[in-house]
């Protein structure tokens, strides 16, 4: 077990971005992002579409190669190796896998493998990566599926399941690898509204169990209830961050206030809802 860097308060830093930037061609998508996530912390990334929140999350997993700055996963530099003369080069695949080994990711589109049964989806990385026997992998897969309430679907095919069930399988597939950090990229955005709850419920349980989580979401209710910290991005920059109660009730930046106002207007059923600073979240 490596010794993790500590924050001033003595918390372990699980994931950290320092001055990270990301460009697509001429367009700067992320500008000088610094973000530090502690063990067991649940951080929600919110912001308008195009604000860079998904790119930020994907950069934290090195699914996008960030250009400047650094990302550290449990104290290890992610994605780059220091080369001679201070230059850095993209890590070899084996090194990248090593630094990412304790990181799990859940995607908006679930990304289950449709040619494998639910159980096989969960078992695959256990067998190939962790070198477990089929029997052991299956046992672990069933235990993990039990956690997301889908053990009875173990031998079903992914495309026979509802979106919510598929996403829970995707969560189980990540969880089976016993990650220390879970990244969620808009996990409920592709779901029918009535299926959102079951996925959020599973994520809530994970948070209660102390999982370190970074969640890109449009579910402000989830962010308000579960997040320890909400980070608001706009134009590729962190505009504001803080505890959800503080952030949602008293946004200090006009952009966040406007974002919350738009959100409330979109999501209010009746016109007589108080429109101001989001007290009804």
């Amino acid at each position: 077990m490596s010794v993790l860097p500590l924050t001033k308060n003595g918390h372990e830093v699980m994931l950290e971005a320092r001055g990270m930037s990301k460009r697509f061609g001429e367009h700067t998508v992320l500008r000088d992002i610094s973000l530090s996530i502690q063990r067991s912390e649940v951080v929600c990334l919110i912001g308008p579409s195009g604000s860079g929140k998904s790119t930020l999350l994907r950069s934290l997993a090195f699914l996008e190669a960030y250009d400047d700055g650094e990302v550290f996963v449990e104290g290890e530099l992610l994605g780059y190796d220091r080369a001679q003369g201070g230059r850095r080069v993209i890590s070899r695949p084996a090194r990248l896998r090593e630094v990412r080994r304790n990181m799990g990711m859940v995607f908006q589109q679930f990304n289950l493998w449709p040619h494998m049964s639910v159980a096989e989806n969960v078992m695959e990385a256990l067998i190939r990566g962790r070198r477990l026997s089929r029997a052991k992998a299956r046992k672990l897969a069933l235990e993990t599926l039990e956690k997301v309430g889908l053990v009875d679907k173990a031998d079903a095919w992914p495309n026979r399941l509802s979106g919510g069930q598929q996403q829970r399988v995707a969560i189980a597939r990540s969880l089976a690898m016993s990650p220390a950090i879970m990244l969620f990229d808009e996990p409920t955005s592709a779901l029918d509204p009535e299926l959102v709850g079951e996925v959020l419920q599973v994520m809530k349980h994970l948070a209660e169990e102390g999982m370190t989580m970074v969640v890109v979401t449009h579910e402000m209710g989830f962010a308000a209830q579960v997040a320890d910290r909400v980070v608001f991005l706009d134009g590729g920059q962190i505009v504001e961050q803080g505890a959800p109660a503080k952030l949602f009730r008293e946004p200090s930046s006009p952009r966040l206030a406007q974002f919350l106002k738009n959100y409330l207007e979109r999501n209010s059923l009746f016109d007589d809802r108080p429109a101001a600073n989001g007290t009804c979240l």
């Binding site: 997993a61 699914l63 695949p93 896998r97 990412r100 080994r101 990181m103 799990g104 990711m105 995607f107 589109q109 990304n111 289950l112 493998w113 695959e124 990385a125 190939r128 990566g129 995707a170 597939r173 990540s174 690898m177």
Partner: peptide
């Protein structure tokens, strides 16, 4: 094959 399926596999530590 959707890129997302490959990314999911990468994040689970599968080799290319």
């Amino acid at each position: 094959i959707p890129q997302g399926q490959i990314e999911a596999a990468q994040m689970l530590g599968l080799t290319s």
